[in-house]
Nucleic acid binder design. Structure first.
Lengths: 106, 106
DNA sequence: TAAGACTTGTCATTTTTTGACAAAAATAAA
DNA sequence: TTTATTTTTGTCAAAAAATGACAAGTCTTA
């Protein structure tokens, strides 16, 4: 998926010929706010992923992957993180994993 | 740097033989909260990076890189983002960059 | 054990995010 | 054009999250 999560929602919504109001209702959401989400002016709330998956019959894990990569992609973008630095960030994530592991054994 | 940002601060503090109270004062911060930061129970506030750089005579840009990679590393860790997904996230960051570029020309 | 250093818990304040509504703009249909 | 519908934008109160501050605890070490 090479779009933002908001654009992805819009794509799904259009494919299924729903209006903002209709999808927003299914998501327990104001249509104005859904519009902002689709236009990248607000974030989609992670809590609603299961509902979203159900509405469009998507695999929740895959949808969550779309969501997570969007969020981290946004983070990378907003911090001007280069590929080189991203490599460092990944190493630090790995370090946290080992930290956590050694915590568990104790 | 293969530590968390909190551990890094502790390292710097110890190298310079400062107590929590002393460093906290220099940072306009409560020593209890600095303790939490060093132990990864709170985040260091980005606003204080310039002060931190000054105190330990560090290059601000490099320090910010340490900070950013820590934050993104934490994000990667907390979302269980695999290397494969991280690659996707990076592509999405790139996509946002192109989005932004085309916005600028218009 | 006494002092200083550090940690933990709690809570009020501040900041950020979210939900909700109104109204404007854009789009489409008559 | 006018009218209806959809979408966007702005605003603001409420909810949630982050931060500052303080008290009381533990740990170190002199």
């Amino acid at each position: 998926m090479k779009t933002t999560f908001g654009e992805y929602i819009r794509l799904l919504r259009n494919e299924n010929e729903l209006t903002l109001t209709q999808l927003a209702a299914k998501l327990n959401l104001d249509s104005a706010n859904l519009s902002k989400i689709e236009n990248g002016k607000r974030d989609f709330d992670e809590k609603r992923l299961p509902k979203l998956a159900k509405i469009f019959k998507l695999n929740l894990k895959e949808l969550r992957n779309e969501y997570v990569t969007d969020q981290i992609g946004k983070h990378i973008y907003e911090t001007n993180c280069t590929k080189q630095l991203l490599q460092v960030a990944e190493e630090k994530a790995e370090y946290r994993r080992t930290l956590n592991k050694s915590l568990q054994t104790q």
